[in-house]
Write a protein that binds this DNA or RNA. Structure first.
Length: 487
RNA sequence: GGCGGCGUACCCAAGUGGCUAAGGGAGAGGUCUGCAAAACCUCGAUGCAGCGGUUCGAAUCCGCUCGCCGCCUCCA
């Protein structure tokens, strides 16, 4: 059994076969920091985070590189609008990006290179392309001549003549062919620039990923990914640059995920129909957003809606309610696995949990089918609740606790003790509902007194009043506890 | 126009040739509970956009039709 992944380059599913057995190099195109990140970016972050977690779970030594584009036309444009230096704008949105990544609970990349920190590497790449007659300078710009690239279009499955015929890009005065793309852009007055043999300017967008990926992962390397909108022209051009400069293959395996849609349309900044990660996380816990995102296979579009998000939040609550029961049953003896670690061999697992582990692995090995894998986690939830209801002993519960936490951890949904999750949910709800915990406790005490006096009518009235305010009471052996409705 | 993808129960979503079509949300009935909540049990698509075809057998393969989306331009 081993991981099979869809490869955009071949259009087929192929086994992951690392260049160095046991090690995987992964490069992901990150964000351009000129605005806040939205749910679409969250999909990319969460998907590749899941990829890294699963690869490590499966025993691979992963080197994960994700870049930050901190210089480009959009950044310059925004900065000019705000009349601040582009570095200041970039720095601001690197800050919000980092906050979003942390809030989503994503693992840090091993290397997070920034374009502006790799200008020499990029200039070197241009020089090599020029030496091979692939790049040409023109009035301070430098372009890559697509016609000189063998196999151009192989990733996006496009033929060069069709691209030329259908090109919406105008042939610029400086460009020889419409499809040629900029490696270096001459600085206009007032724009940020770096010195180069071709004059002051800045790198073209595609160049940074070619330079930085191979700097940190070598050439060729194993896995390169991003959103499916990057297939053309971005990734096609990366291949052109890197293979053109060296004559060696660039990347073995390309993985691309589909988009988040909203009302049947792609969520994007240009359409203005986006919700930021920050806005969503005010409404639901990060685990709920992650669960929402991984409940669809990565190569299918996921439709965002309030109802779907609410469904995910309720499903997430089910997961954590069960975790809370488990933790209560085990008392203080709960060292929860956090995910991202190597899994034990299936043969070493207790027979009670092995089927869940194996089914989860089978699902993830099948082109990272996280939706199916999540179904397995819920199967185990039911099994755990059954055991708890039947009064199973602690060791039996502990076996499942370890397994269930480990599987959930791969999907990034059971990373904290249940209590902290449930407390956070209470806080989120109370902040919006205008009710204080002290008041809830007071009403619970009042109700307890009424119930003791057999005044169930009064007791039920209090419970109904709290319910109307989104607070659910639960009468247990040790007294009454409360939680909040997921809405 | 070129290329690619999608249409599965009330909603979301797995399943891509053959056991009773996963799982989650919502709903109905039951157990438990003073009543609830949570949990558990049971029910829920004789059918997988429509129509044809291939096959012993198809949601799954092929053809056509209808509806929707993405890329081809900055975009996760």
């Amino acid at each position: 059994m081993s991981l099979v992944l869809h490869n955009t380059l071949s259009g087929r599913q192929e086994p992951l076969a690392p260049l160095v057995p046991g090690k995987v190099g992964l490069y992901v195109c990150g964000v351009t920091v000129y605005d806040r990140c939205h749910v679409g970016h969250a999909r990319s972050l969460v998907f590749f985070d899941t990829v890294v977690r699963y690869l490590r779970f499966a025993g691979y030594d992963v080197k994960f590189v994700r870049n930050i584009t901190d210089i480009d036309d959009k950044i310059i444009k925004r900065a000019a609008e705000e009349t601040i230096p582009s570095e200041e704008l970039a720095s601001r949105y690197i800050g919000t990006f980092r906050a979003d990544v942390a809030a989503l609970g994503c693992l840090q990349p091993d290397v997070e290179p920034r374009a502006t920190g790799h200008i020499p590497e990029m200039l070197d790449l241009i020089a090599r392309l020029e030496k091979r007659g692939i790049a040409y300078a023109s009035a301070g710009d430098v372009y890559c001549s697509v016609a000189r690239i063998a196999g151009y279009g192989k990733l996006s499955k496009r033929k060069l003549d069709e691209l030329i015929a259908g090109a919406r890009v105008e042939v610029g005065e400086r460009k020889r062919e419409g499809l040629d793309f900029a490696l270096w852009k001459a600085a206009k007055p007032g724009e940020p620039f770096w010195g180069s043999p071709w004059g002051p300017g800045r790198p073209g967008w595609h160049l940074e990923c070619s330079a930085m990926s191979t700097k940190y992962l070598g050439q060729p390397f194993d896995l390169h990914g991003g959103g499916e909108d990057l297939i053309f022209p971005h990734h096609e051009n990366e291949i052109a640059q890197s293979e053109g400069a060296t004559g060696m293959p660039f990347v073995k395996h390309w993985i691309h995920h589909a988009f988040v849609r909203i009302n049947e349309e792609k969520m994007s900044k240009s359409l203005g129909n986006f919700l930021t990660i920050e806005e969503i996380l005010k409404r639901v816990p990060p685990e709920a957003l992650r669960l929402f995102l991984v409940s669809t296979h990565y190569r299918s579009p996921v439709d965002f809606s309030d109802q779907s998000l609410l469904d995910a939040q309720r499903a997430c609550a089910r997961l954590h309610e069960t975790l809370a029961r488990v933790e209560e049953r085990l008392g203080g003896n709960v060292a929860a696995p956090r995910g991202g670690e190597r899994a034990p061999e299936a043969a070493a697992l207790p027979a009670s949990v092995r089927p869940f582990h194996e089914q989860f692995v089978a699902a993830m090995d099948d082109d990272l089918n996280s939706a199916r894998a999540l179904g397995v986690v819920f199967d185990e939830v039911r099994e755990i609740n059954r055991l708890l209801d039947a009064g199973a002993d602690a060791p039996a519960i502990a076996e499942h606790h370890a397994n269930f936490g480990r599987l959930g951890g791969v999907l990034g949904v059971l990373r904290h003790p249940a209590a902290s999750y449930l407390e956070a949910e209470k806080g989120r709800h109370l902040a919006g509902a205008g009710i204080e915990p002290a008041e809830i406790e007071r009403l619970i005490a009042e109700r307890a007194a009424a119930r003791k006096a057999k005044d169930f009518k009064r007791g039920d009235a209090i419970r109904d009043e709290l319910l109307a305010r989104g607070v659910v009471l639960k009468d247990g052996a040790g007294g009454t506890t409360w939680s909040v409705v997921q809405s």
